[in-house]
Design a protein around this nucleic acid. Structure first.
Lengths: 196, 196
DNA sequence: AACGGAATGTGACAATTGTCAATAGATTTA
DNA sequence: TAAATCTATTGACAATTGTCACATTCCGTT
């Protein structure tokens, strides 16, 4: 599956053949089965993964014991608890495989090495970080300014390869509503469609 | 007011005297009066500011025309629309001075120069970026997992130097509720306190 | 000090969302 | 394949939040 990752590096980072080779040499591929965890609360997220197959979610447990989905990741997405990765402290998140999945796996040491030795790599990650910042801003804005039905609509439009692949109750918690409410929102949306 | 900034650089970044001098040479101080704007929608946020006096808020206008506060900044905080700064594209935000304020003002060129020439500066900003990421995560988690009264309580506890200095309707929009709801939450909280 | 506008508080009611319970459908596992 | 588990939907009702209207307080300007 390295070729899948290589394609990404060429397209997003403009990597050359020799740069790709440098990355290949340190890339570890890892398979993980559905419902298994890549990370659990209390452990340090000392890796970064690039998803080549499957799907993941990152969630936290609330005071109420409920699971709140912070993020999804499918093919071509990066996955880690970056907060824990960057601070080196224990994570308060879980990362769960939602399907049988496969990823390119980078330890903290490997990651730092790539950043330090391949300028293109750092550039790519800096761009990614900026995009991430923007996405966070947009999500916060959505949360404070839009009603639930609009948030769901936006979610579907923003993640067309994602929304019909993931259990609805996870989407509900991602949006900050209950599964029942999401059910009703979807029903209303469907009715509006047939009426038009 | 550079001394105020210098203190920050020493405490947070461990800057040496000679490094401070390098920063001082390129630092521009800027005053701005209450209710004036540091940034308006449609312009590019091509600066980063460090607040040495006063207070700011960064907000976006929603579809409904309402203003939604994305962030506050008081003394010792950085202020900019980082999304626009990082992408170089037009901002969809406003930055408003909430009091007569003063800041250390860095153009994009100056900023890049500081990052490139002072390793300590980049290190400090990298740390800051990591903290920022964590803060975003926590806010999103708060938005999707906590009821409004808890969010307000957390806000007060998290920003003790801020919450009683800023109009309530701005706090309400920051939390994603209406001013009326915030009013009632505060009333209930006060009643609980006198009852105990 | 007085005025006017902005900000906050409050009541009545509407709309939205949550909770609980029951059911049906889908998927996994033995 | 069948049983068990997980997921999604729905109804009835409760709780929360929003909307609108108006009163009150606060604050800056003259």
């Amino acid at each position: 599956m390295f070729e899948f990752f290589a394609k990404y590096l060429v397209e997003k980072g403009g990597f050359t053949e020799s740069e790709l080779e440098l990355v290949r040499q340190v890339t570890v591929s890892k398979k993980i089965r559905k419902s298994h965890y890549l990370l659990e609360e209390g452990k340090v997220s000392d890796f970064i993964g690039f998803v080549t197959k499957g799907a993941f979610r990152l969630f936290r447990k609330g005071e109420d014991g409920q699971e709140y989905t912070m993020k999804f990741a499918v093919e071509n997405w990066w996955i880690s608890d970056f907060t824990s990765f960057l601070s080196g402290e224990q994570s308060n998140c879980y990362i769960e495989a939602l399907e049988n999945s496969e990823l390119m796996w980078f330890s903290r040491e490997t990651w730092d090495h790539l950043i330090a030795t391949i300028p293109n790599f750092r550039r790519m990650i800096d761009k990614l970080t900026a995009r991430n910042f923007e996405a966070h801003q947009n999500r916060i804005f959505s949360n404070i300014s839009e009603p639930a039905d609009t948030r769901y609509e936006n979610f579907v439009n923003s993640y067309p390869t994602l929304y019909n692949r993931i259990p609805l109750y996870m989407i509900a918690s991602f949006l900050g509503i209950t599964r029942e409410t999401l059910s009703r929102i979807r029903k209303q949306a469907a009715q509006r469609k047939t009426t038009n």
